[in-house]
Design a protein around this nucleic acid. Structure first.
Lengths: 120, 120
DNA sequence: CGCTTGACCTCGACCAGCTTCAGCCCGCTA
DNA sequence: TAGCGGGCTGAAGCTGGTCGAGGTCAAGCG
């Protein structure tokens, strides 16, 4: 599939996809003889993974590192696993942060109801 | 208390606190006759709220709006409540996003274990 | 054949959200 | 009275990620 369809399917903009490839966030996309990128299912999977990672705050440098490991072959599987596990842990931490914020907001809101006063 | 202590207690840098005040993210901090900011408990509460909101992705423009409403007095309490409730909803949405990412990672990881192969 | 469409590239602009810098002031201690 | 720590200001700088402009090229179509 072409870049426009990859864009539609992933929600990434065309510019962003090109930027990701050029920055080595994903393996190089193969080209047709006209020089156009040809995305296959595997490429799309990568992009979708990148979407998830980006949405959840992984910096591009880490994604670069991940892709770099991938290019070095199966020997790096343990390192790649470790990276994903790390990220999962960060997500967990992040979720409790969100929980704490929700609690705080709930408290603030209940104070509005009690006092309807001139506080925050 | 002085700005250095406010910084210590909130985890915000001194520069950030000044930047927040100057951008109207919190009410104006009162000054001593030497021109130095004097933070009271109320101010600290604001800063801590800002911390939570920032950590959870509220854009500063929204915090500005919130502070603007606060300065307009109690008549704006319903709007302020609405803002906080909105943010809570966004946090919920965000948490399910994180959940989806965790699921995806779990899937990827289990594939590593199954196949130990040359996939993402 | 020429038009349109959609791809390609490079490179610089943009944005949020700080951070740093330069230069000044105040109060305290030695 | 000099030096020092810590505060003040405004403006400039930085970073990570994204977008846009400008210009080219290839495929498809009437």
């Amino acid at each position: 599939m072409k870049i426009s369809e990859a864009s539609r399917r992933t929600g990434l903009s065309i510019s962003t996809i090109r930027y990701y490839e050029q920055s080595g966030l994903c393996p190089t996309i193969s080209r047709g003889r006209d020089g156009q990128r040809q995305f296959n299912a595997h490429d799309l999977d990568w992009l979708l993974l990148l979407c998830s990672l980006r949405e959840t705050g992984m910096p591009t440098a880490a994604m670069q590192e991940f892709a770099r490991l991938y290019r070095r072959g199966n020997a790096t599987v343990p390192e790649r696993k470790a990276m994903l596990i790390d990220h999962q842990a960060r997500l967990k931490e992040r979720q409790s942060q969100l929980d704490r914020c929700r609690d705080l907001l709930t408290k603030k809101l209940s104070r509005y109801d009690e006092i309807i006063g001139d506080q925050i």
